[in-house]
Design a protein around this nucleic acid. Structure first.
Lengths: 197, 197, 197, 197
DNA sequence: CATGAATGAGATTTCATTCAT
DNA sequence: GATGAATGAAATCTCATTCAT
């Protein structure tokens, strides 16, 4: 294995451990020691690959964001019609929360850094831009094909994402009583209905 | 001033300082020292009024929640028709974010505590329940009066709140480029349209 | 009630509360707040009657010592013969531990202050002097009356006190397994036998 | 020096500093800062080797106890006859106080923790058990060999230890006036006489 | 006399970061 | 590259003491 490979593998290992730590202890409640232990490496080596905790966090946030964006890209393109694509988009956005709740929790933890850390804000806002862009493209396509009515693609994509985020939040707060499944169904049809002529 | 007055005024003062600190530094990035400095009191006195930081935070969270709930209750009742009431509900939910962005930021910071602190989770989930209840009542009223179509009141209220929360989040991430005003308008009409026959 | 009476009653009240606190929490683990609460007075008033915590403690130690010394004086004099008197002395020394274990605990807590606080050391050493003096007198009397053999009264009194203290300590460490009653009986007869011709 | 060596040496260093601090300031009147300064290390490193102050104290108490027990074991076995052995036992018990007054002071400081901390109580009571056991064995041997009269070995060992502890306490309280040497002589002969037929 | 709000020093503990090995 | 001992700053919390009322 080349040096670069070792380095990137170590980084991967540390990033994975960090995500685990965040989802286990919360953004602020874990230490570099925790990451080191989880990754099975020494504390020192983390600082060899990452300047400091902030840089590590930024790197993790970017990795997580890219991972989610990749999922969107891959799956949307599998669908053929705009209607199917927007359905996939909505399903995926909901699934992201359910399947990768850890990631979502990680994202949420990062959110609270916005006020404090400009670079974190930028990464998140870019991430939203990217995902919104995917939705926007699908809507645009649907309008052009005559499947959807003429809404503002950017705004409606944003609306879809917002609704899904907000609903998911309520579920996160009240796992036991909140009927997430029913909400997913209802919101999905409502969001799709808003696009239909 | 009587001693009871002093006590409640001092508590108020500390709570206000805490909210300021959270919105300025973030939930985890402020110290009791910061609160003391902001409130213009000594570190010790905070622990005189609040057992520890957690209790202070819980108290603050409850105050903030109650304040927001009060705003909803007060303003919804001013409107007469169900249509007006739901409009007020939506407007208010958006306004809460704009007018009291600090409060919203505070709420967001609390969100990330869910995984770690059960009591925080409970307070927030109860807060959502209360506000959702206000929306639910309005929708129910509208259905009964024949103004709205037969949706599930709980679900639709949740949907409204979710959409507004989620849209606001995107705005918080990207204050400069995100056209919040347009989104508010678009989302409002979309949410109301969903209720109309 | 005169001013002086009020003052001495308040002091008494505070001293009692302090003893309770020491025996409940240990010498170092109680606060002035604890004393205030136990005595049912305000924190401020304690500092009105006692300069500071150290002075309060010194006062308490003296009170406790005087109380114990009084018990010795009173009871020894009830007995008539030297043999009876020394028996009373021994019984009392043991009883002090059993009946007023709190006091004993308090004393022990004070012991550890010897190295640190000269005045505490002096009070305790004076207390030992006094009690030793009582034993010494009895032994002297017994020697003169021909009941006891010629031992050094000071040394033997010290020996008696030491044995009782040391045995009691072992009991305090191991309340459950240590057969204190048997030890009291054995030590008593041993100590008395050492005085007999 | 290997890392393991560094670790055990550092622990040793910290324990020694702690003992010094206890004997200098008393159990409760020293801070982790004091230990750090005395050991010539940073505050942080103490918590690296010991979870917290309590654990440090427990470790120290155990070390001190084991050290004393070791001294007994080693020296008693050097003597041949039961009479010599019991003399060694008594001498040692007195010497422990004189030679290692700091240790004794440390023990005394731990005593006052009994009421508060169960684990401290257990360590001390076990320590007494061990030392008492050594005395008990010697007495048993002496009885079997016909050198001593038939006393209860456990009780008499306890009696010896108690007398020595108690006498030493009085000396600690009044170093200047108390004739410790005379008392050691007198008590020793008295304690041995009690074993002789 | 009496209260208790207020202070501020200091204690324990945590942890990101450094650096000799 | 990798380790983990070591540092030191900072955080929470406690508490004796003061003092305005």
């Amino acid at each position: 294995m080349s040096k670069a490979d070792v380095a990137s593998e170590r980084k991967e290992q540390i990033v994975k451990a960090t995500v685990d730590c965040i989802s286990k202890y919360g953004y602020h409640n874990f230490s570099m020691q925790d990451v080191a232990r989880t990754a099975g490496v020494s504390k020192g080596i983390i600082h060899y690959y990452f300047l400091n905790k902030d840089e590590l966090m930024r790197f993790v946030l970017e990795k997580v964001s890219l991972g989610l964006e990749g999922q969107f890209l891959k799956n949307i393109n599998k669908a053929l019609s705009p209607v199917d694509k927007i359905k996939v988009f909505i399903e995926l956005a909901f699934e992201v929360v359910q399947k990768t709740r850890e990631y979502y929790q990680v994202s949420m933890d990062f959110w609270t850094q916005i006020n404090q850390k400009e670079d974190v804000r930028q990464i998140i806002s870019k991430h939203y831009d990217v995902v919104r862009g995917y939705g926007q493209d699908v809507i645009k396509e649907g309008i052009e094909s005559g499947d959807f009515k003429k809404v503002d693609p950017y705004e409606y994509a944003s609306y879809i994402m917002g609704a899904i985020d907000g609903i998911s939040l309520q579920w996160l707060f009240d796992h036991e009583n909140y009927n997430y499944e029913a909400m997913v169904k209802m919101a999905s049809s409502e969001l799709i209905r808003g696009l239909q002529k």
